[in-house]
């Protein structure tokens, strides 16, 4: 393994991503947790650039760092919080067991992947990345692409119906 710019870029992006995740677990205020996770999402976009997936990186910045973070902040601000995460009742042993379980899961998967090495096959993913994705979407994956629009429509209608239902009930009472 040689020390190149790509390696340094990967290490710093990975470090920021993991730090964002750890801050998500350790901060006390809910807003701070969501803002910490923005660092993780932006770093993951940088990782996508390293993997020559520029279009996915831009989509990641727009959807995750933009849309999903804002929608989560709205969710926090529309609900009342005491500002801090409430302490769970009798959580010490439960948390420890969960931590050990997740650690065991991570170790088991790591055993499977740590010496994974494929033969490097030359590829052309970095050339006209967006054009390749567009051609693939509109030729090979046209049916899943159209089904995605149906999913988005159903989610939109479902979200509006779910969030509005009680308004009408309260209106009837008055």
């Amino acid at each position: 393994m040689t020390l190149t710019g790509e390696f340094f870029a990967f290490m710093s992006l990975a470090l920021v991503a993991v730090i964002g995740g750890v801050l998500l677990l350790n901060l006390t205020k809910v807003i701070h947790m969501v803002v910490a996770l923005v660092f993780t999402f932006v770093s993951i976009a940088g990782i996508y650039v390293l993997l020559s997936a520029e279009f996915v990186a831009v989509v990641q910045v727009m959807i995750y760092s933009g849309a999903i973070t804002i929608i989560m902040l709205f969710g926090i601000m529309l609900t009342r919080h005491h500002g801090e995460e409430a302490e769970p009742k009798g959580g010490g042993l439960r948390k420890l067991l969960l931590f050990l379980g997740v650690l065991g899961f991570g170790a088991a998967v790591y055993l499977g992947i740590y010496d994974l090495n494929f033969e490097a096959v030359p590829n052309t993913l970095h050339e006209n990345n967006t054009e390749q994705i567009g051609i693939s979407l509109y030729s090979q994956y046209i049916i899943p692409f159209e089904l995605t629009s149906v999913i988005l429509l159903v989610a939109l209608v479902g979200a509006i119906v779910l969030a509005r239902k009680d308004d009408e009930k309260e209106g009837d009472k008055e």
Binding site: A53, F55, V56, V59, Q60, I63, Y64, A67, I68, I71, M72, F74, G75, L78, T79, L125, N129, I133, S136, L137, Y141, P144, T148, I151, L152, V154, A155, L156, G158, A159, I160, L162, A163, K165, D166
Partner: peptide, 24 residues
């Protein structure tokens, strides 16, 4: 990459519905 894009679209839909359930 195409598959990752589909996963992102479904994740966004899931976040919207999850938040609507939370508000309700």
């Amino acid at each position: 990459q195409v598959f990752a894009l589909f996963a992102i679209a479904v994740a966004a839909a899931e976040a919207a519905v999850g938040l609507a359930i939370l508000i309700a």
